[in-house]
């Protein structure tokens, strides 16, 4: 019974109304977060507040380009979070590499390495776009469509292979960097 309640409609409704962010900032995207959290836009009215540790958070924001070294930290952080967890990709850098598409140090498509639930396009998305993304994520959660964390478990082999490939190519191997 508990299991069915956990995934049920009521629980999903609560989850959509209380999304806790992880304060993990990469790239230039983080600069748009303070304006969306302070008085003019105020993310907190949707029940969205930043949390200090990955154990407490529900939403992982990838705010921009990811260097290979950061990717490793992001993956560790993502795996520390408790289910259900969601990922939002900020800006064109997470979608296709953006203006760093040919850089030797960054990854291009975040979706190869982590399951992304919602993307925000733009280089740099404004607070309005961030709000739109959060409301879309809330809708998805309520409908039960934000299943990235389940996909990560199902297709773990594929994600892991992709992650290993990029770490090996850059000479960063598990355990030493």
């Amino acid at each position: 019974m508990l299991e069915s309640f956990r995934g049920g409609k009521v629980a999903r409704w609560f989850k959509g109304r209380s999304m806790w962010l992880l304060h993990f900032c990469t790239g230039c995207g983080a600069i748009e977060l303070p304006p969306s959290m302070t008085s003019r836009y105020d993310l907190e009215r949707f029940g969205i507040i930043p949390m200090a540790s990955p154990r407490q958070a529900d939403v992982l924001l990838i705010t921009g380009y990811l260097s290979v070294k950061t990717l490793k930290r992001v993956i560790t952080t993502y795996e520390q979070m408790l289910d259900p967890k969601y990922v939002i990709g900020f800006g064109s850098c997470t979608i296709n590499g953006g203006m760093y598409w040919d850089s030797y140090a960054t990854i291009n498509k975040l979706d190869y390495y982590l399951p992304v639930d919602v993307y925000i396009s733009g280089c740099m998305p404004a607070p309005d776009a961030i709000f739109a993304a959060f409301l879309e994520l809330r809708e998805k959660i309520e409908k039960g469509e934000a299943n990235g964390y389940k996909l990560y478990k199902i297709h773990y082999e594929r994600y892991k292979a992709n992650q290993d490939k990029v770490f090996k190519n850059r000479g960063i191997i598990e355990g030493e960097d």
């Binding site: 609560f14 989850k15 209380s18 008085s39 907190e44 029940g47 520390q80």
Partner: peptide, 29 residues
């Protein structure tokens, strides 16, 4: 606190949402 910061602030029943959400999360650690 939000009003003092000149923000709109969450609904007053927000802690109920938070607590219920936390209680329905899965634990894998």
């Amino acid at each position: 606190t939000a009003r003092i910061h000149r923000r709109y602030g969450p609904p007053v029943i927000q802690p109920y949402f938070d607590t219920l959400k936390l209680l329905t999360k899965e634990d894998n650690i």
